[in-house]
C-alpha cells in the first residue's frame, strides 16, 4: 500500500519526527482537523511507516486518565519524514518567493 505524500501527510510526518506522540498533539500542532489526521495515521500505519502501541496502563491509571495510543515512526517512516521535510521546505521557499518570477514549482513527492 502506498501513501501519497500530501501536504497534510507531510505535516503529520514532521510532527511525529519532531517527537510528538499522540493523535491529539498532532492535531494541535498542525492545526489539521480530526477528519484528516486520523485517516492519515491509519493509512501510514497500514503502509508500515508507523507503529503504535498503548502506553503503560498503570501509568495512565496513576494519572487518573484513560491510556493513550503512542505513535512512532519506523525506519521507512523516518525516510519518508525526511522527504516530507524537503517537500515542506520547497513549499516554504515557493511561498516566500515572488510568485511572478518563478515557474510553478514541482512540489516534490
Amino acid at each position: 500500500m502506498t501513501v501519497r505524500l500530501t501536504h497534510a501527510t507531510s505535516l503529520i510526518l514532521r510532527a511525529l519526527a519532531s517527537g510528538l506522540r499522540h493523535g491529539f498533539e498532532v492535531m494541535e500542532v498542525s492545526g489539521l482537523p480530526s477528519g484528516t489526521v486520523y485517516p492519515a495515521l491509519r493509512r501510514l500505519e497500514r503502509a508500515g511507516y508507523l507503529t503504535s502501541v498503548w502506553e503503560d496502563e498503570a501509568r495512565a491509571h496513576g494519572e487518573g486518565r484513560p491510556r493513550r495510543r503512542i505513535y512512532r515512526l519506523t525506519a521507512t517512516g523516518d525516510a519518508l519524514a525526511d522527504r516530507a521535510a524537503e517537500r515542506l521546505a520547497d513549499a516554504g521557499r515557493f511561498l516566500a518567493s515572488d510568485p511572478g518570477l518563478r515557474p510553478r514549482g514541482e512540489g516534490g513527492g
Binding site: 499522540h22 494541535e28 480530526s34 477528519g35 489526521v37 491509519r42 491510556r67 493513550r68
Partner: peptide, 30 residues
Amino acid sequence: EEWRADLRDLRARGMTLGEGLRWVWGVATT
C-alpha cells in the same frame, strides 16, 4: 479507546464545545 483519550486530553486543554463537535464530526467521517 484512542478517541476517548484524545477527546479527554483536547477538552482538558480547553477545546470548546463547538470545536469538540467539529472534532467528533471528523472522527465520524473517518
